[in-house]
Design a protein around this nucleic acid. Structure first.
Lengths: 325, 325
DNA sequence: ATGAAAGCGCTAACAA
DNA sequence: TTGTTAGCGCTTTCAT
């Protein structure tokens, strides 16, 4: 069915060792032989069996990237950053999504470990220290992206979400908005909690009251619309809304605009992430940008370098557009 | 480093064959022995080496899914449908993205073939008949999703985009909109061309004039905004706009609303795909729904069944929301 | 520059 | 029910 190195060797009239050399160390093979082998490879449509190679070499040339949700552009961008860096290093990527489920996360890890990945980049959902310890014991470096886990000995690349939340809150305060709301998701993952904590701290320090918190069960535009509806139903709107991410913010803005509320005149809205959609929203979104591709790239570098206990924290950046200006 | 089946055997005081049996045919192993082996597995943190298994068995339990762009929710939904079906069948998925580049598509195919996938689901970009023939010769069933390629002997699952374009156009006509525009992307992939052709045919049959066509270099909301700007610059707006997909439509609607144009009163807009965002847009989007998860599921079934030359065509469905009603 | 051969970890056929 | 063993396709060491 699928030609093996042996058939290539026979067809080219050389030994398997020579074929292997052509594949892996072509400079050590005489020009004429190499040409002959290459021709045989082409004629037979030979494709190297990676399973055999990995088995023999003891490890493959793939890294596992396990993210929470590929439908969220935040994660796709992180993933792309990682892929670009990986390809540059001669590695391929094995993608997995946990969909926020610890159970699926476990299955993905099993899969990736069985596949013999030589490193792992993860946005952890329910990962426990024991499992990480096992991975490390198996010689698989683990790098966390966007989240750290207490008591776990692994590298991480995160964004300073407390600073991000603070940036957002201070921006609204500087605009003279003092009656604020914060829209988040329930259950609130650590990054979301940190964003809210940062905002809260900034407001407290400025002597302001804490924002009203609204929690929706998802981080989607639909959830944002519902949150805005709830605020509209209260009768009295805040004059500024901080959102846990851009997808929610887009929903909030859409619902407000539909209800005839003027953004930003009546209500200013700030998102988080700066996904591509943010700039094209009905009212272009003021938001806190995360260096997403850098997250992926740096995570890759740490994994490939098999670094020990490094924790990189990147700075977020306020991007001012019309929705809060 | 990583424990092998041999160490498990030694620790449990059995032979490797028995360990393998516990792993693959547990019912054939005596209760007591099984328990002992399982305990050893747990204590050692044993993980099966899939490379060795695949090598021995001649093929793995993975399927390759190669899509064009994971940032487009259309593809993520297709991918999810495929994943669900695959997991149900005991398979795992190897994801790849071609990013619309034939060159990257080729690299991904090389990778997947080396990995020994036992089937392939592809939205082809530059795939040629020769390559597909080789895959088939290697015993790898190939299923195309969303597109067919002339002269290539492979199964496909597509949506009848001509019918979809027709649905959209007829809906606008029924609403009394006769001065239409069609916003598409350049280069125009076959599915986009078919949608436009369907719309055109419906209009011609109804004795209407062809819509003005606007092409933007991408299928993004940003592109949609630019298209709408161009229409606004013309001075006289159409009263109905057909969009090549929802992402573009969202941009079009956003720009129109910003410019004070009333949707749908002044201009009705129809999208295509019915992505999640469509329902949460500022003006909820009338659109042509594609059964995306079904596409993924059926493609999986065809691949696993190693079907021959089956071409499944699914019907699109008009979803009427506010943007054209 | 090339060939011969061992062995990676696993499965399955066969033996006991 | 359990043990023994050949061999999957490849890389690499050691000869030649």
């Amino acid at each position: 069915m699928r030609a093996s190195i042996r058939e290539v060797a026979r067809r080219a009239g050389v030994s398997v060792g020579t074929v292997s050399n052509v594949l892996n160390r072509p400079e050590q093979v005489a020009e004429a032989t190499r040409v002959r082998v290459l021709a045989a490879i082409d004629e037979l449509g030979f494709v190297r069996n990676e399973a055999a190679r990995a088995l023999r070499k003891g490890s493959g040339r793939t890294l596992g990237v396990l993210v929470e949700d590929l439908a969220n552009p935040y994660f796709t961008d992180v993933a792309r950053g990682a892929e670009a860096a990986l390809n540059a290093g001669g590695f391929d990527v094995l993608w997995c999504t946990s969909d926020g489920s610890p159970e699926k996360e476990r299955r993905c890890l099993d899969f990736l470990e069985e596949q013999g990945v030589s490193g792992l980049i993860v946005t952890p959902v329910g990962l426990d220290a024991r499992r990480v310890a096992r991975l490390r014991a198996h010689g698989i470096p683990v790098v966390f992206v966007d989240r750290r886990i207490a008591g776990v000995n692994a590298c991480s690349v995160t964004v300073d979400h407390v600073a991000g939340g603070r940036l957002a809150a201070e921006h609204l305060t500087a605009l003279g908005r003092h009656d604020l709301a914060f829209v988040t998701a329930e259950p609130e993952t650590p990054p979301l909690r940190q964003r809210r904590a940062g905002a809260l701290r900034a407001l407290t320090q400025a002597g302001r009251t804490a924002p009203l918190t609204i929690a929706e069960p998802a981080l989607s535009p639909a959830a944002g619309r519902r949150a805005a509806q709830r605020l509209l139903d209260f009768g009295t709107l805040p004059d500024g809304i901080l959102c846990a991410n851009d997808l929610i913010a887009i929903g909030v803005v859409n619902e407000l605009v539909r209800a005839g509320v003027k953004v930003p005149q009546d209500v200013a809205v700030v998102g988080y992430d700066d996904i591509e959609l943010a700039a094209s929203a009905v009212v272009p979104l003021t938001t806190v940008r995360q260096p997403r591709r850098d997250l992926g790239r740096i995570a890759t570098e740490l994994a490939l370098a098999d670094a020990e206990g490094r924790h990189i924290v990147l700075a977020p950046e306020l991007v001012v557009r019309e929705s809060a200006s």
